[in-house]
Design a binder for these strands. Sequence first.
RNA 1: GCGCUCGUAGCUCAGCGGAUAGAGCAACGGACUUCUAAUCCGUCGGUCGCAGGUUCGAAUCCUGCCGGGCGCACCA
Length: 562
Amino acid sequence: MNLEALLADRLSAALASVAGGPVDPVVRQSQHADFQSGAALALARRLGRPPREVATEVAAKADLAGLATIDVSGPGFLNLTVDDAALAAGVDALDDDRLGVPPVAAPERIVLDYSGPNAAKELQIGHLRSTIIGDALARLLEWLGHEVIRANHLGDWGTPFGMLLEHMADLGGGENEHSLGDLTDFYRAARRKFDEDTQPSVRSGAVAGRSDGGFKARARLRVVALQAGDEPTRALWRRLIEQTERTFLDAYGRLGVTLTRGDFVGESFYQEQLSSVLSELDEQGLLVPSEGALCVFPAGFAGRDGEPLPLIVRKSDGGFGYAATDLAALRHRVRTLGATRLLYVVGAPQRTHFRMVFEVARSAGWLPAGVTAEHIEFGSILGADGKMFRTRAGDNVTLGALLDEAVERASSPAIGIGAIKYADLAGDRRSDYVFDWDRMLASTGDTGPYLQYAYARIRSIFRKAGAEPGPVVLAHPAERRLALALLGFEAAVHAAAGRREPHRLASYLHDLAVAFTGFYESCPILRLAGPYRASRLTLADRTGRTLALGLSLLGIDLPEEM
RNA sequence: GCGCUCGUAGCUCAGCGGAUAGAGCAACGGACUUCUAAUCCGUCGGUCGCAGGUUCGAAUCCUGCCGGGCGCACCA
């Protein structure tokens, strides 16, 4: 049941009849009543009539029988107060698995690109937001009835693999798995060898020496071998990728993220499509040689010096960068996978990149009418000092270490990890946020534990309650407030999914928990007998269902007890 | 330099064209013989960065300025 939509429906009929055409009823929650509409104010101006007069006419024509009462207030607001009987019936009806929310009428096929860590590295805190936000959106959109194709765009290709594979070969070809046991150490060691090799060319080290001379050069050759399909090199590469995929899946499992191995489609997958990306762009006359590279110059992008900014499709050394891969992936997702909507959950700093990619794709005809691409950007996680969140030593924080600390501090995986996820999802994703253990683990306030606690109390009641829930009767103001909150679920889910803003759902759930806690404090249940007890049990039951469903859509677990 | 983005209560943030700007934290004062007090109730606290403009109405839209962040050709 969607109260707002129901009220808006009834009001828009009245508004249309007064205006002689469709008018957006703009029904919103209000402090002055359950809901309000300011539509008459705007309409009055259009009609050149006094606002209160228009409002009065709309109120008179609105058919709200059995649903709400309406009155004109202030300069011409329409205040709507929902009938208690309608509220009670609405809550009674929330007894199915979907809480009365129907699947969308027109499902889309959505490719949702998120997480995207780099192979051969552990997941870092830098991947946390993309993973958490992306997974919440995946769950939400899927639950609403869309077909969601999760795409974990792994960084499994490119220049760093030269040094990684060469280092791996030095260690004995990766025969022994534990050489990759700690990927962070492995990566660091390779990096160190690469950086410490200052020799300008391979020539001086060509005399098979024990010194590591020429590591850099060998790494470069290794990249060439990888891209040329050299089988021993490919075998090393596969081994490395398999190992890292295993560690990613472990981390996703711990985090409670729905990505599976089948969702892993790394950059390597698109390598054989790159030449045709190039040729199609060329056929359309979009490709421009510049300083040795092949570029597209989408309109409206200027660089530091005011010159047009290129999207570099092929580098001057003949290699392909991420722009080419992103274009290939986009084309593949539309053309082969048949997506009607592309979502990229990637940090805000890449905004320009995605604008350019989308613009070029449109020019190339890879984003036809009816297909949309959207960059779901998000801000950074900051430390208490307001700078990027790092360890004391200045290193990136690994996800494993972060989750360990969360579980230790909360002494419960569900609570610790839920706290991290909730903190990430509770604010506007575009804003940076400060990572603060004490705040996110607080049992009071807008936090995961607060919501989980409300749920645990409900479960506790039902462990003790003998009687069955019964029809809702609203007698206490706290019951009414809770009922109203319960009926706001559908609107919250649609707001969150429609704008790809999970915090709309998170903050709804917090409001619901607050309404429940108020009810819990002032409306005893177990002590009662008869219809009021049954009614309150129903209210508690619906709250529990809504919290459980809502939090599951955000990817947050709920303990039965706390 | 150009572009994008953000500046709301001491702190962390909602609100993004509508009625006296909301939460949480912190501070202060209350509430447990009562379904989990990991809770609740109350008080205190804001010229919504500054200045103009559009509008019946602006934290919300436009312009300028100040301040922070990010981006600006071969790393993704």
